[in-house]
Amino acid sequence: MSVTTTNKAVPGEPLIRFENVSIRFGDSEVLRNVSFQAEAGETKVILGESGSGKTVLLKLAAGLLRPNSGRVMIMGHDLVDMKEVDLLDFRRHIGFVFQEGALFDSLSVAENVSFRLREESASLQEIESRVRQSLRFVEMEQSYDKFPAELSGGMRRRVSIARALIDQPPIVYYDSPTAGLDPVTSQTIITLILRLRDLNGVTSLLATHRVQDAFGLANFVFEPKSGRVLPVWEDANGRHFALTKVLVIRNAEVYFQGETTELLKSEDPYLRQFLE
């Protein structure tokens, strides 16, 4: 029943690879021939307007939806061919932060964060200590006993991040983590994602409609020694560049793929419109 996989990437094989993926709901085609890949340690920012299919793309990448055609390869496994039982097991390698958090509202914050551990029937002490550790990481330890209804939107996202990273998955998907938040809270969330990337080396897909998120992730790194977020060009060990790439979806297709610097220089009117 268990799928044997290691957290290590196969050398040369990207951790996440989409091959000509298409999906439609009824008559409307949401994604058409989408292909891209993400190397180990890379953060891929999926940029697109509302309704462009960002959420659908992330759900495909977690095997929560199945494409009508194409292949979704995660850590060398084709999710399209996997049965749901095996997918349930495989998803331990993937953390998923949903758009509005998707916290279980009948469960407390601690129960939400420990959901996966309790399913794996870990010991009570272990659960408690790991939940606290995870909540401390997102600076939400004080909300241990609260219920989701008592939290603000930004707090809910943070708890959702804590829940996704409890098992330290090598891959994390963030669905619009800053949507509907004020600039300060958005920055907190982005800093959290930076820390996760630079401390644990997670590979991630981040869906957003805000181009600032892409620049925030591309131009800053978290420095574990000083515990500070630094601009990439100030790093003492030379250029400690952040592996961040952008993928723009428009009209169900990949419209642009590349570095944030290329995006900045682009003359394309549609992309410029995003930048303004």
Partner: peptide, 17 residues
């Protein structure tokens, strides 16, 4: 309500049927 707030998807994402 669990479906529309993506809680059911979250459950599947956390490895629970």
């Amino acid at each position: 309500s669990m479906v529309v707030t993506e809680q059911v998807d979250a459950m599947r994402a956390l490895g629970t049927d």
